[in-house]
Simulated assay, not measured.
Amino acid sequence: MSTKSQVLTLLMKQAPNFISGEEMAQQLSLSRTAIWKAINELKKEGHIISSSRNKGYCYGKSDVLSAEGIRLALKSATPSLSITVLNSSESTMKDAKLAAINGEPDNTLIVADIQEAPIGRFGRPFFSKAGSGIYMSMLLRPNQNFEEMAQYTVIMAVAVTRAMNKLIKVSTEIKWVNDIYINGKKVCGILSEAMSDVESGQISNVIIGMGINFSLKQEEFPKELRKKATSLFPKEEPTITRNELIAEIWNQFYAILNQLPEQHFLEEYRQKSFVLGKTVSFTQTGVEYEGIAVSINDHGELVVQLHDKTEKILSSGEISLSSINPTT
């Protein structure tokens, strides 16, 4: 751990109390000069650190993304994460894929303050702004069969809604497959991809990525998105930090994994779905269909009853809902 990381972790642990430079130097076995240099570097990065000649230093709550801030908010039941925080990324999904190729370990998390070329499902771009969103991807190495892949996307959606509901007390809904909505507007998109081992026929790597509109003001969205998208704090100042939300999302995600094979999360997913009971239009293998979304099965697939009473099973990788309308 670098000197700056050690100093930041200690300041965060001590907050909101002051800690003297001498005590910090003793605890970390560093010189007072090293402490002073690290604190100045942290201030330049945007961390709010107040100082008093008599009391020392105090860390103020600031929304600067940091591996240290995320780790401090992780629960003991959550596995140790290998966390990389980037100022900017073309795409954290691409970063995670490269990490997989380079042999990075299970539970590798990559977080960026902004994505220069963010991509959602089916290669669709989405809006990104520095300091106002959460853009992250997790590398998992599950060694499971392809039939179990769908569970990861469903679990992730439930984990995100649980974290948002717990920390911000918002009412969230899920648009199948994994878009999170608040008050009829999209606040989060989730994307999952698998990499397989040809010889074993198993999934060697799973990458789960997401983009969350955190504190983007409603008027800052492009005009074409203002009626479709929102953020967790579209008007008011955030009551939590991005680090806290990131950590809670993964706390909830691993809590569900630790409870498997129990599948209570599936019922929670169904209850939060605003697609069920609605008329949906979609395209599958080049053919357009319309029907009523009647259920979500145990694989996370959407079951749609067409007008001729036949059913179509829709998996996340092959279709996209083009419209959702109330049934008449």
Score class of each variant (00 low, 15 high):
K97F: 15
L81E: 03
K37W: 02
L98H: 12
A34R: 03
N107Q: 09
L72E: 14
L65P: 01
S91L: 10
T33Y: 01
A73G: 00
N87I: 11
K55Q: 14
S52W: 06
A99C: 14
L42R: 11
E68C: 00
D106N: 07
E68A: 03
K97M: 15
S52V: 02
L65G: 07
K13D: 01
S29M: 13
A73L: 13
L98M: 14
A15G: 10
S66K: 06
K55S: 09
L30F: 00
E90L: 15
H47S: 01
K13V: 04
K75E: 09
I83E: 03
S50N: 13
D63N: 10
D95Y: 08
K43D: 10
L10T: 01
K75L: 09
T108M: 06
L86I: 07
I39L: 04
K97G: 09
I35Y: 04
Y59Q: 12
W36K: 06
R71L: 04
A99L: 14
Q26N: 11
S88E: 13
R53N: 13
E104T: 10
P105E: 07
L30R: 02
N102H: 01
R53L: 06
F18P: 02
S20E: 05
K97V: 14
G69Q: 03
E90D: 13
L28Y: 07
G56S: 11
D63E: 07
K94N: 15
T78N: 02
P105Y: 05
L81R: 03
L42S: 00
A34M: 07
A96Q: 07
K94P: 06
S76V: 07
T92K: 06
A67S: 13
P79G: 05
E22I: 10
A38E: 06
S50R: 15
A77L: 11
W36N: 08
L42Q: 09
Q26T: 11
V85D: 14
E68N: 06
F18V: 01
S89A: 15
I70Q: 05
S51R: 15
V85E: 15
A34Q: 08
S20M: 07
S91W: 05
E22L: 06
L74I: 09
N102A: 08
I19D: 00
K55W: 05
L30Q: 08
L74N: 07
L86Y: 13
P16S: 00
K44N: 10
K43I: 12
M93L: 12
P16F: 08
P105M: 03
I48K: 06
I101K: 15
E90V: 12
K44R: 10
T108R: 00
Q26M: 12
L28T: 04
E23G: 03
P79H: 08
V85Y: 12
L10F: 03
C58G: 00
L28D: 06
T92M: 12
L74P: 08
N102L: 08
N54Q: 15
S29D: 14
S51T: 14
A99Q: 04
S80Y: 11
V85T: 04
N17V: 10
Q14F: 04
M93G: 05
G103E: 13
C58I: 15
A73Q: 11
S51H: 11
S91T: 12
S66G: 08
N102V: 00
D63G: 10
R53Q: 11
P105W: 01
D106M: 05
A99F: 13
E23M: 13
P16L: 05
A25Y: 05
R53I: 04
L74E: 09
Y59N: 10
A15H: 12
L65T: 11
N54V: 03
L65Q: 01
